[in-house]
């Protein structure tokens, strides 16, 4: 059964890789037919430009500048969401009190928050705040939903066997929220990167990836624009995979202990 699952996974990876290669081939053909590098740069040119950028001074400092701030926003958001979700589960009036804020963050366009935040904060902290704001409602709602769907029978068992809260948390609630946590972290990490970079493009803090994207737009450097976009995609997907793998590993270790 495990072999079948591995085979299906390998097949899925091969199919997806083929689709990516086909998309790149189509992009290359379209760029060659159009023959206008300002409008559509060929993927080969983007790769060359990316290689040049990596060797340029300031590339890694820009990467770490944005990476650090966006991840900080994500981690703040994750901590606040976990804490407030537990509070809302324990004291339902907290959920009611938080409802207007959660709804506001969900429905107000991110650009409005960015501009409002620029009035109040320096642009260097903007991506932290915006990532936090985008991540918080997604994780908060998912964790709260996970807690609410906890098996009532297990909770009764915990009550009759007088389990202390630490053991209820580790053995009943944490396994319960696992699927909710994994799926919401995927969404939240993607949102953190998208909104964080958007905030940097609008706020233009010195030395950020957003600033590099803004400069590429000003100078109509399409190859730079796409090369930096590739960097963002790699960082976003890479961090998402690493973070989810870390959560799965932590869960596996916890479930295997005796």
């Amino acid at each position: 059964m495990q072999d079948n699952s591995r085979k299906a996974k390998t097949e899925s990876i091969i199919k997806k890789a083929s689709a990516v290669l086909l998309a790149l081939a189509l992009w290359q053909c379209a760029a060659m037919l159009l023959n206008e590098s300002l409008l559509l740069v060929a993927p080969t040119r983007v790769c060359v430009r990316l290689w040049e950028l990596i060797r340029e001074e300031g590339f890694w400092s820009s990467v770490f500048y944005s990476l650090w701030r966006i991840l900080l926003g994500f981690l703040f958001g994750a901590c606040a969401a976990s804490l407030l979700a537990v509070l809302s589960y324990r004291f339902p009036f907290t959920e009611t009190l938080l409802w207007p804020y959660v709804m506001a963050v969900r429905t107000v366009p991110v650009a409005s928050f960015i501009i409002l935040a620029l009035v109040l904060f320096s642009s260097s902290r903007l991506s932290v705040l915006i990532s936090f704001l985008m991540v918080f409602p997604v994780l908060y709602s998912a964790i709260l939903q996970g807690l609410k769907s906890t098996d009532r029978q297990l909770l009764e068992m915990a009550r009759t066997y007088r389990l202390p809260w630490q053991r209820r948390l580790g053995y009943i609630f944490m396994p319960q929220i696992k699927p909710f946590l994994l799926s919401s972290c995927t969404t939240a990490l993607g949102l953190a990167w998208k909104s964080g970079i958007a905030a940097e493009v609008i706020g233009i803090p010195d030395g950020s990836i957003g600033e590099r994207l803004y400069q590429a737009k000003i100078y109509l450097a399409t190859a730079d624009l796409l090369a930096w976009t590739v960097v963002i995609v790699i960082l976003s997907v890479g961090f998402e995979k690493a973070f989810l793998a870390a959560i799965r590993w932590a869960y596996a270790r916890w479930e295997a202990h005796e």
Partner: peptide
């Protein structure tokens, strides 16, 4: 000490962990 109609075990953990939990 209650033995419910249902087993009411923590599914992801071993028998040993489930018993040591209580």
């Amino acid at each position: 000490s209650v033995l419910f109609q249902e087993d009411r075990l923590c599914e992801d953990f071993t028998a040993l962990t489930n018993i040591r939990l209580a």
